[in-house]
Design a protein around this nucleic acid. Structure first.
Length: 701
DNA sequence: ATTAGGG
DNA sequence: CCCTAAT
């Protein structure tokens, strides 16, 4: 009735205006197979673990050397205070620096493991240019308002707050707390805390690192996302007290603006706030909740090899665990390969994620009761569930171990183990210095739109979070997208000997610190030739220590100069592709409402005028492009044709589908007839509502 | 920048 | 949804 009328009107009203175009079916192209992206994940598990172990090792040595003062509480407090001050200061600087840039985010890395015992505070702002080069990166605006503070602490004594707290009360846990303790605290916290709550959970897992994350599914309001990464105490006594905390405060500022703000005529209801950071900054600076774990001095981190043993002990003790992880990694890798999404662009690292609510019993600890701690914590999980059920849904899961992005390391055989360690350490540090970004991967797809809520993204407490992954990416990316990481390698490898001799301890790595290579390597001029003549050198040069794959581009940043030199060499499209971590937009099923709007618009405008359709019906839906609408129409038509049983997803009212068919038929006719359509019989189309197939004959006579 | 089609 | 060719 009403619909009928509208349709009639629409058809009549627009038939004159419409200038149908000839079908472009002639444009059909042959199968233009796209190259398979067979790039591999390049996260070096081995290296990662090596690095991790080195850290622990150094810690252990420091811990042991600090044994006497290890329990010195007073000392610790002082340190805490000092550190806190220092940190605040630094943070302040950071914030100010950040200042006007609404696009910048920063990551602070505070590490006591630094050789010079200083914090490394690095700010980074995502290179806008880099983003711009990524054509599918629509979400330029965000993640800039995500501030994270990474605190890498070096424990040397027992009782110190193990949390870095930002803007929200947290449960503090002494790092020596055992599982029981943690449980208690959790339960306690359960009652005390409302809303988002982050808990530091100490467990005995061998995990070098574990992330526990909990945050509301909807982060578009005032909610802060808190993420705490804690370094798990390792079984070994010398390790048992150390942990790293990461507190990540992310804020999606209130609005949910669309991924890209098109400069259209439409009023931009959502304009990115000019100073996204400010509020948070203030919050951060004034927060009473800042709790900074003390960074204890390391005593000659690399001095002795005493750590080796514990290291291996640890290894052994967690062997099965490693196995497990490895397995999951493999699985994940497979998954990624299937979706051909994963290319290690800038340092890919994925880790297993367990969904606590989902698993129930495994609780915070993770998978399948894999961890002993799991049982101990499960109860609290349950209660937590209960508590959050009444409130907003929270997504809870734990991240077990980030994998360190790929590193390239090369040292002479004659180098000492110590120097190797140092090299790795420096490499890692360099990357941290460069700043890290956290990427979120869902079902193999990288989620780049920081503005969407978790719900919108498909991360909900109800969903299976197994598909959720995170990456740590070096913040510094190659300036020129045309340069693929593979290319520089040969040159590097060929320079390797020279460099190594030049600087003994200097890692021959292309880490995030491109400046670390002061002088242009001599052989530069040859690079081009090298690349073409000896491609194998890429893989052949790979360090045995690293499980590198030829395709891995990792966080490799090409030294400025070799970049230039290489620029001449046409970048391999395949590699190029891999290097661009193009994220697939997350799926956003059309709602019935949207379908309705689309149908109506198409009824009136016809197919082939998607831009107009977009303008008419979806002007305010920035996430729907005209291509999307066109695609949706396509699927709608298909859906309408198939039997209801075969349809999936949110069922579209048959009435709408009928209209789809009718309009489709009509406009098909219309187009086919080009001009000569005087469909007086247009009215018949409306009959389609009653009889879907009636539409077929509904055209003008 | 849009459209049409294929994947 | 993505990618591309063709407009």
């Amino acid at each position: 009735m009403v619909l009928k009328k509208r349709l009639e009107y629409g058809l009549h009203g627009f038939q004159v205006l419409t200038v149908p175009r000839a079908p472009r079916s002639t444009r059909r192209r042959g199968p233009n197979k796209k190259k398979i992206d067979d790039s591999q994940i390049c996260a070096f598990e081995l290296l990662a673990s090596l690095a991790g172990k080195l850290l622990q090792e150094s810690e252990s040595s420091s811990a042991s050397s600090n044994a006497s003062e290890g329990n010195n509480q007073t000392f610790g407090d002082d340190v805490i205070k000092q550190e806190k001050q220092a940190e605040d200061k630094l943070l302040k600087e950071e914030f100010f620096e950040q200042g006007s840039s609404e696009e910048s985010a920063f990551v602070s890395v505070i590490t006591s493991q630094d050789i010079d015992e200083k914090f490394i505070l690095k700010k980074f702002s995502n290179a806008v240019s880099e983003r711009a080069s990524n054509k599918s990166d629509f979400d330029d605006k965000v993640n800039k308002d995500v501030k994270s503070v990474i605190c890498n602490t070096k424990p040397a004594f027992q009782n110190y707050p193990a949390k870095v707290e930002v803007g929200c009360p947290l449960i503090e846990e002494p790092c020596h707390a055992n599982v029981e303790n943690g449980k208690e605290r959790q339960q306690k916290g359960e009652k005390l805390e409302t809303g988002s709550l982050t808990k530091a959970n100490t467990c005995n897992s061998e995990d070098p690192m574990q992330l526990q994350i909990e945050f509301p599914t909807a982060v578009n309001s005032d909610n802060d996302v808190k993420l705490s990464l804690l370094r798990e105490p390792v079984p070994n006594a010398s390790f048992s007290r150390h942990r790293n905390d990461i507190k990540l405060v992310g804020s999606d500022d209130d609005e949910n603006f669309s991924r890209y703000n098109k400069s259209s005529t439409k009023g931009k209801a959502f304009k990115p706030p000019a100073r996204i950071g400010d509020r948070r900054i203030r919050k951060l600076l004034t927060s009473k909740y800042w709790k900074v774990a003390p960074k204890l001095r390391d005593c000659e981190v690399f001095r002795s090899d005493s750590g080796v043993k514990p290291l291996y002990n640890k290894r052994k003790s967690c062997y099965s665990r490693d196995r497990f992880q490895h397995d999951t990694f493999c699985k994940r890798r497979k998954l990624f390969h299937r979706s051909s999404v994963v290319s290690s662009d800038g340092g890919f690292s994925s880790e297993s994620v367990s969904n606590s609510p989902e698993k129930g019993k495994s609780g915070d600890m993770g998978f399948n009761g894999m961890f002993h701690g799991a049982a101990g914590v499960s109860s609290s999980v349950i209660s937590r569930q209960a508590s959050f059920n009444s409130k907003d849904s929270h997504v809870k899961f734990s991240i077990k171990s980030f994998k360190v992005p790929e590193l390239f390391i090369e040292v002479p055989e004659t180098a000492t183990v110590g120097s190797l360690k140092r090299t790795v350490m420096e490499t890692v540090t360099a990357i941290l210095e460069g700043g890290l970004r956290v990427g979120v991967i869902l079902q193999g797809k990288k989620i780049k739109d920081d503005n969407r809520t978790l719900q919108q993204t498909g991360i909900s407490s109800k969903d299976n979070l197994d598909n959720l992954g995170f990456t740590l990416e070096p913040n510094i990316l190659p300036v020129s997208p045309s340069i693929c990481a593979d290319d520089p390698l040969p040159s590097l490898s060929c320079e390797a000997p020279e460099q190594l001799t030049r600087s003994t301890g200097t890692p021959l790595i292309d880490s995030a610190i491109s400046d670390s290579l002061p002088e242009p390597p001599p052989p530069v001029t040859n690079i081009g030739t090298l690349v073409s003549s000896n491609p194998e050198s890429v893989s052949s040069h790979t360090d045995p220590l690293t499980d590198t794959t030829p395709d891995s581009q990792a966080l490799v940043v090409v030294p400025a100069m070799s970049m230039e030199a290489l620029a001449v060499v046409p970048a391999n499209p395949k590699n190029r592709k891999a290097s661009e971590f193009v994220q697939r937009r997350t799926r956003r099923p059309f709602s019935v409402l949207e379908v309705e709007a689309l149908v109506q618009a198409v009824e009136e405008l016809g197919t082939g005028r998607w831009r107009d359709v977009k303008l008419r019906a979806f002007e305010n839906a920035d996430h729907r492009t005209y291509v999307d609408l066109k695609d949706k129409w396509k699927t709608l038509v298909h859906t309408a044709k198939i039997s209801p049983q075969q349809r999936r997803g949110e069922p579209v009212p048959q009435e709408l589908l009928d209209r789809v068919l009718a309009a489709h038929a009509y406009w098909s006719e219309h187009q086919a007839k080009q001009h000569g359509m005087q469909q007086t019989g247009t009215l018949k189309i409306t009959d389609a509502s009653a009889d879907r197939h009636g539409a077929e004959g509904s055209h003008s006579s």
